[in-house]
């Protein structure tokens, strides 16, 4: 088991390096340091000398990958890539371009609000998805199933933006049940979280229910279920004991991979509800073109994805002893 995990992590290293190279190419060639400097220095009275000074002070005056005039290893080390991109590998995110804040520290503090909203959204959503999907599977073929599926398809055909706009308008403004947006720390945050969580769960309900319903139906049509039924087990018992257990693999694939991303927050939700999480952080950085932050978030995102993949593989072995490591 341990060797398997280690091997998986070793496999991940080239991917991480690849991501790092790719982001360096994208971000340093797309947004030249001149652009960055001008944007950050402001709108009034920006001279070329100031741009040059800014670049020099922030280390953006170097070439991206290869510094020909330098000697020896300095050819490689005196570059933007070596100074700015490589340190990401050991989670040294550096400072933001725009206001010189410590990105690592910022990520640590912003992670919690993100988690505060995404964790309840995720668990509540999953439970609700599974429950409704199982109901539909149980009553398959009845009009309940038919309309349930129709409703799910209708719900997934509506853009998330409509859910958010409509929810804020109805529950926040007209009914005055919740604060329209905002956030607070500790227990005071609860009243702010209800609205986004409800909207978040609703907006993903359609897709979730439809997906898990097919998963359950696939299991139900298998031979062992027929055997179980033949044995005289009630439909409910069949569904909850046998089908659910065996449907765990597809469910896990879907679920485990997204667990690390809970830290990552949701761009749109956090924006609309003014949650000071990582999603909001990212959108701000995109709009202000602070690429030190965007780069860090790209890197963090890929790490979380890879962690998710590894976790998925490990979790398989826990639910299904037939899956072994090669």
């Amino acid at each position: 088991m341990l060797t398997y995990i280690i091997r998986r992590i070793l496999y991940a290293i080239p991917i991480v390096i690849g991501v790092n190279l790719l982001t360096a190419v994208l971000f340093f060639y797309v947004n030249t340091p001149d652009d960055m400097a001008r944007k950050i220095l402001g709108e009034k009275n920006v001279t070329a000398a100031q741009v040059d000074n800014w670049k020099r002070d922030h280390g953006y005056n170097l070439p991206v990958f290869f510094n020909t005039p330098e000697e020896g290893t300095a050819k490689l080390t005196e570059t933007i890539f070596f100074k700015k991109s490589l340190p990401l590998l050991w989670f040294d995110f550096g400072r933001s371009d725009r206001n010189n804040i410590d990105i690592g520290g910022e990520i640590k503090t912003r992670m919690w609000p993100s988690l505060a909203i995404s964790l309840p959204m995720f668990t509540l959503g999953l439970v609700l998805d599974l429950f409704i999907a199982m109901m539909l599977a149980y009553y398959r073929g009845t009009y309940l199933d038919l309309w349930g599926v129709v409703l799910a398809v209708v719900m997934m055909s509506v853009s998330t933006l409509f859910y958010i706009i409509g929810g804020q308008f109805l529950l926040g403004k007209v009914l005055k049940l919740f604060p329209i947006s905002g956030f607070d720390t500790g227990i005071d945050s609860v009243k702010f979280l209800v609205l986004p969580v409800v909207i978040g769960v609703l907006s993903s309900l359609g897709i979730g229910v439809r997906f898990y319903r097919t998963v359950f139906l696939e299991e139900i049509n298998k031979d062992y279920i027929r055997t179980a039924r033949a044995k005289g087990l009630g439909e409910g018992a069949v569904l909850f004991k046998h089908a659910l257990k065996n449907a765990m693999i597809p469910i896990l694939t879907n679920v485990v991979v997204s667990i690390p991303f809970l830290f990552y927050g949701s761009l749109i939700m956090e924006r609309f509800f003014a949650i000071p999480g990582l999603g909001n952080f990212t959108i701000d950085a995109i709009q202000a073109q602070d690429f030190a932050i965007v780069r860090s978030m790209v890197y963090l995102g890929s790490i979380l994805y890879i962690v998710g993949l590894i976790l998925t593989d490990i979790s398989y072995t826990l639910v299904d002893p037939r899956v072994r490591f090669e």
Partner: peptide
């Protein structure tokens, strides 16, 4: 001072 980046929530909270 509260951070409000979206116009609509800000306006509605003022009215409230």
């Amino acid at each position: 001072f509260k951070l409000e980046q979206e116009v609509i929530p800000r306006w509605n909270k003022f009215l409230q």
